[in-house]
């Protein structure tokens, strides 16, 4: 199974309002694309993303998302003002559909993403035959 990751630049995101950004992300997620955003979503945007996800969940195809914000946001007032003027929030956000992402976990030195890869039945059978044949 192929896995597609789309990287979205901070410049592209800066041109979008919150609602547009959320629908842009969800549109990709529902097409089974994992999205890496070159910005840390704001907590309110994260809540909006969860809310919009809940509205989109159906019982057959789409069961939700996994996401993770890696925040390297400015802490001091001066840095915050500079970020606000530049319209950019430093960090990354990874969002993907649950059917592809098993888990995103924070480890001490890195973020780990575990993706699910469904092996087609035919491939499983082939692998089974190889095991039996010892090759």
């Amino acid at each position: 199974m192929e896995i597609q990751l789309d990287f979205v630049s901070a410049e592209t995101l800066a041109r979008k309002g919150s609602a547009e950004k959320i629908s842009f992300i969800l549109d990709k997620i529902k097409r089974n694309i994992i999205v890496v955003l070159e910005e840390a979503l704001e907590p309110q945007e994260e809540a909006e993303l969860i809310e919009a996800t809940m509205r989109e969940i159906d019982t057959e195809e789409f069961h939700g998302i996994e996401f993770y914000r890696i925040d390297s946001r400015a802490k001091g007032l001066r840095e915050k003002i500079a970020e606000y003027i530049a319209g950019r929030r430093h960090g990354l956000t990874i969002v993907g559909p649950t059917r592809l992402i098993e888990a995103i976990k924070r480890e001490p030195d890195y973020i780990s993403m575990l993706a699910k890869v469904d092996v087609p039945e035919e491939e499983k059978r082939k692998r089974g035959r190889k095991k039996k044949g010892g090759k």
Binding site: I50, T53, I57, H63, G64, I65
Partner: peptide, 8 residues
């Protein structure tokens, strides 16, 4: 409870 996924 808050969740990001609900799978029936």
């Amino acid at each position: 409870g808050i969740a990001t996924q609900v799978d029936y």
